[in-house]
């Protein structure tokens, strides 16, 4: 499971957690998140996220 960070506001998308309230189930891999999905905190596009090397 990887984490992806929003370059605009630092929101972290954690594949393990998903974003259940937006219909993205826990365990959803980044490549399976729809391209139309945007950062829940600031609205940045999916392409504005970078993979984060953490734990």
């Amino acid at each position: 499971m990887k984490k992806w960070r929003c370059l605009v506001c630092d929101f972290v998308y954690d594949e393990a957690k998903g974003v259940p309230e937006e219909g993205i189930a826990p365990g959803t891999r980044w490549e399976d998140v729809p391209d139309s999905w945007t950062c829940p905190d600031c609205g940045a596009a999916k392409s504005d996220f970078v993979m984060e090397e953490i734990d």
Binding site: L7, V8, C9, T38, C42, G43, A44, A45, D48
Partner: peptide, 11 residues
């Protein structure tokens, strides 16, 4: 001033 689009799509 097209501020709504800016907040919806900040980059």
């Amino acid at each position: 001033q097209r501020h709504s689009d800016h907040h919806a799509n900040p980059t």
